[in-house]
């Protein structure tokens, strides 16, 4: 290895560049609004927890987190349970148009969310799903199911077909083989696929905001509506931002060892 002069410096600068916005967010969340708008301070001179207190006590704030988590979890469960059998079929069976269907699935992700906002809004209003977590959870499936199928297909294809055959020769029924043998083998793939579903659903704003109004309003939508007569509540917004980062960071921690394979759609 050649030693690059000043490599520590370069690395340090890079890390500062990456972490600065996050630090500033955390920094702001502990300041009073007066301190935020009056002077620029590198750390809170009068640290306060008032913004966090507000979020955890004011229902209009904490219900935003609950609503978001609710549809994210529903969506992840639906996406994985639908994508698993589909991924198995794409991996193991040849049927008419299988390759085209497989590609078409992914092409669903290429349309912007705005394209789907109008039809979903109209449809869900008509059947009474509007402003429920199910509305957002089902709408997000249009992006997450294809992604999960693609990721899981790669992982299923990594399991030798002979294992299926051995299981059938041993007498396993199909459901039993699927749950007892296959699922444990691709557990890391399921984790990665769930992570991607979770992350997409968690950060997606447009559909989530369009398909809800009051009862199922997600946190991201709540955050965009903090302008009051008294002006922007900067500190509160920053605290909400910090709390929004935490679930994603936690999930990443659990799948950190498999995430590269997930980005390569299981084909590493």
């Amino acid at each position: 290895m050649h030693s690059i002069p000043g490599r520590r410096l370069i690395m340090g600068l890079f890390l500062i560049f990456l972490m600065l916005p996050i630090y500033w967010l955390v920094n702001m969340s502990f300041k009073t609004n007066g301190e935020i708008i009056s002077t620029m301070t590198l750390w809170p001179h009068a640290p306060t927890l008032q913004h966090y207190r507000r979020i955890f006590t004011d229902e209009s704030w904490y219900s935003g987190y609950i609503n978001s988590l609710e549809y994210v979890v529903i969506n992840t469960i639906i996406s994985i349970s639908v994508a698993l059998p589909a991924a198995y079929a794409f991996s193991r069976y040849r049927f008419l148009g299988d390759k085209h269907l497989f590609f078409w699935l992914l092409s669903n992700r290429m349309a912007p969310a705005a394209v789907y906002a109008l039809p979903f809004f109209n449809l869900y209003s008509a059947i009474g799903l509007f402003d429920t977590p199910w509305a957002v959870a089902l709408a997000h499936c249009i992006f997450n199911v294809p992604l999960a199928v693609w990721i899981l297909e790669g992982f299923v294809s990594g399991v030798p077909r002979e294992i299926d055959e051995t299981a059938f020769l041993d007498g396993y029924s199909f459901p039993r083989f699927f749950i007892k043998i296959l699922v444990p083998l691709i557990a890391s793939g399921i984790g990665v696929a769930a992570f991607f579903c979770f992350m997409f659903s968690w950060v997606e704003l447009l559909l989530a905001r369009t398909l809800t109004s009051v009862n199922a309003k997600p946190i991201a939508a709540v955050m965009t509506r903090t302008v009051s007569a008294a002006g922007m509540d900067w500190g509160l917004l920053a605290a909400a931002g910090v709390l929004t980062i935490i679930p994603g960071a936690l999930v990443i921690w659990f799948v950190r060892n498999y995430i590269a394979r997930g980005f390569a759609l299981g084909r590493v």
């Binding site: 030798p160 002979e162 294992i163 055959e165 051995t166 299981a167 059938f168 020769l169 041993d170 007498g171 396993y172 029924s173 043998i181 444990p184 083998l185 557990a187």
Partner: peptide, 28 residues
């Protein structure tokens, strides 16, 4: 195949990687 009384050993070593050796042998 489940209705047939057949056992097969492949050229590649095929076992259930998520089960212990004991459970592998006990599986049928």
């Amino acid at each position: 195949v489940r209705q047939r009384s057949v056992a097969m050993v492949y050229q590649q070593f095929i076992n259930y990687p998520s089960l212990t050796v004991y459970e592998n042998i006990a599986s049928p």
